[in-house]
């Protein structure tokens, strides 16, 4: 009995040693020479492999950034400036700070604002739906609410709330990797600067139809009236194709446009509440 046990142990130990030696030599023989800095950079990166930087993953990003002469065009949206600073330090390069970004769903066509005109009964995917027809509302441009962005998000930061019917971004979780921007067949989602204390002013509409058509389809749509553009003291707002757009690099967050908008298509985010003006209870959300 004891003999058997001892024999077994001895065999296993011997086998273990044999394999260890073989593995060691094989590893030496087939070693891939790699720039050690790639490993260093990769260890700094968040390791989410989201592809938000435009590379195949964190390792590919590290390889490419090490090969490149400078930091131009390389930015990890997940790690943001702190990570990029560290990467630049590790490579002994200088880096420009980028303003932190966040994904914004430019549609406020909720179930309440935008009545459904037909019922979609196909596979629940915005892509399938968009290739079939204009959508289940009178608006051809707005959120279809089937959640392709939700499926694309690796950070659980964007959801289609069934009660609203429009995708909603969780600002705390959003890393601005841009996966949802690519996934959205309607091109509604935009990466915008987070802004000072996360404060932002955004037109939540991309409807290019004429004002009357838009108004019929959705009560919160931009009708392209241009009041906001006239009101803006900084010239940050342009109206093109019947829809207003606020350049977040120019906007000074004065919020005059928010008050001027007749359909409340311009929304403000994360500002402290204004006590003096009675605001209509429209959705204040992303």
């Amino acid at each position: 009995m004891t003999g058997t046990i001892l024999f077994t142990i001895a065999t296993l130990v011997a086998l273990g040693l044999l394999f260890a030696v073989v593995l060691y030599f094989v590893a030496q023989k087939f070693k891939v020479e790699e720039d050690p800095r790639i490993g260093t950079v990769e260890s700094i990166l968040p390791g989410a492999n989201c592809g938000g930087c435009g590379h195949a993953g964190c390792h590919a990003f590290a390889e490419n950034v090490v090969k490149a002469p400078d930091m131009e065009g390389f930015f990890c949206p997940v790690g943001g400036n702190p990570v990029m600073t560290k990467v630049a330090e590790a490579l002994g390069r200088a880096v420009e700070e980028k303003a932190p970004m966040v994904a914004v769903v430019r549609c406020n066509g909720t179930l309440a604002n935008r009545p459904r005109t037909n019922e979609y009964d196909g596979y629940a995917s915005c892509k399938v739906m968009a290739s079939l027809y204009a959508g289940d509302t009178g608006c051809k441009f707005g959120c279809l609410g089937k959640g392709d962005c939700e499926a694309a998000c690796k950070f659980d930061a964007i959801h289609v709330d069934p009660a609203r019917g429009v995708a909603t971004v969780d600002e705390d979780k959003c890393t601005a990797c841009g996966a949802c921007v690519k996934a959205c067949p309607k091109g509604i989602i935009e990466l915008r600067a987070k802004g000072f204390k996360n404060r932002r002013v955004t037109v939540l509409c991309v409807n290019k139809d004429k004002g009357a058509v838009t108004r019929k389809a959705c009560s919160a749509g931009c009708i392209g009236c241009g009041k906001c553009a006239k009101t803006c003291p900084f010239g940050a707002i342009t109206v093109e194709n019947n829809v207003a757009y606020i350049d977040f690099n120019v906007c000074k967050l004065c919020r005059k446009c928010v008050e001027s908008c007749p359909t409340h298509a311009i929304n403000e985010f994360n500002f402290p509440p204004k006590p003096k003006i009675e605001e209509k209870p429209h959705e204040e959300n992303v």
């Binding site: 459904r116 005109t117 037909n118 019922e119 979609y120 009964d121 196909g122 596979y123 399938v128 079939l132 027809y133 289940d136």
Partner: peptide, 9 residues
């Protein structure tokens, strides 16, 4: 009439 149902073929 009900809302029209729309789906791919």
């Amino acid at each position: 009439m009900n809302k029209l149902i729309v789906s791919p073929s």
